[in-house]
Design a protein around this nucleic acid. Sequence first.
DNA 1: TAAATAGTGTCTGTAAGACAGTATAAA
DNA 2: TTTATACTGTCTTACAGACACTATTTA
Lengths: 254, 254
Amino acid sequence: MSRDWDAEQDFLQAYAPNDYPSVALAVDLVVLAVAEGALHSALVHRGMHPFMGGLALPGGFVGPRESTGQAAYRELAEETGLDLGRMPVHVEQLATYSDPDRDPRMRVVSVAHLALLATDGRILPALSAGSDAAAAAWHPVHQVLESTMAFDHAIILRDGLDRLSGKMEYSTVAAQLVPEEFTMTQLRTVYEATWNTRLAAGNFTRKMMPHLQDTGRKSRAATGAPAALFTATRSPIHPPLTRPGTGVEARARE
Amino acid sequence: MSRDWDAEQDFLQAYAPNDYPSVALAVDLVVLAVAEGALHSALVHRGMHPFMGGLALPGGFVGPRESTGQAAYRELAEETGLDLGRMPVHVEQLATYSDPDRDPRMRVVSVAHLALLATDGRILPALSAGSDAAAAAWHPVHQVLESTMAFDHAIILRDGLDRLSGKMEYSTVAAQLVPEEFTMTQLRTVYEATWNTRLAAGNFTRKMMPHLQDTGRKSRAATGAPAALFTATRSPIHPPLTRPGTGVEARARE
DNA sequence: TAAATAGTGTCTGTAAGACAGTATAAA
DNA sequence: TTTATACTGTCTTACAGACACTATTTA
């Protein structure tokens, strides 16, 4: 057994490329959640150079036997202190950032990931300092994007927001930002927070309804009529929802 | 001057992380072009183990001072022998593949890119062996996807096709697969080849028209009426085109 | 009852899909 | 003239956006 394995290794070794540069591989995380009608991102204040004091995305290096997806999930737990075992979280790859000078210290290629946390729309998940010293804190995305950030993280955050904004048009990914059972208003709030706009409640309900599963249960709100509780389906939204300001009228104004 | 630079380097060195694994960073290319009504991909036959004789995507390692986008462009020239100076080509990042065992020889993380070449719909760009021995050849995508490929390249090719298929719904990216000036029929052929379906010519013209620029010139075809020549604009297609088989009717059939 | 929210009905305009009909060229 | 292609017109159906209206709860 061991002999075969050794032979196999030797064999592959013989065919391995022998001249290639190596790089440090990292993940950066765009962690998003909705509260108070605004989309928030978990960010850390850098405690050392370069960009000391600047805002940065949480992240870290990829382990020798990890995929980037696994590293993203691990770093999410380590850097935010979130108990992911109890919390539904959606993680997907965003893009890879590889400018040789993006980190002034050395060459770091970073695979950015988007992580969506479920909230009830009122309370953000508590963040605590994990294994690293710097604790993450929530910042409103649309405000943060008007300031500067460390490294190329402002670009990554913008790309993450754009990805989410676009994907919400033709999928039910927004349901990853509310509890498993949610009301139409909770879901609409996610759209409004992400797109930074207002949507007509009645029409939103009608367009979204066919893509959701009605649980038959009702929510008990503080006031107003009780709202139906839905769960998401994987049904693609065809034709997509239209983001105000991107339609024909907007083009005509140009 | 040199003193300052040295001091800066020492300073950054002091703050550099010191414990991280390094990986070999590569690019893989999904090179697409349309001819004879079918979408084709440039693929190489592997000349050595592992996966000897198998079909693989062209690709190679990223240089020490290159971004992945630059490496993709360079490898595209080297592996296909295409004269990119004379040929418009659209390159965009697809996704990063990082399974630790995706290459049995060693750890290679690959950033896949999508490259779209302009054709007149009849003749595929000639491929020649570049610096590497193995020459690339064109293969029909929808057929190749039913066979097996080396490494995880079948997955990458499928992801590339899905990306293009989706993006064509809401953008004029399909125009990257035809000459700068093109007829409505040429563009429609790109959609039909990619989506592997047929589209009604009249309706296609009406829906696409607002997103194209009419040059005023006409094509001289072998037969039939002369067709208007268009150039693309960057106008997003809102609401998007609908791919047959993904609409409401298709969902109702489930 | 008043206030607040949930959800439905209705109207209008736009556009998609189907397809017939017309125009323009080459053989 | 035949054939092939390019384009336009028309009809029907569907649905988005706007918004009024009803229903259901708490204070």
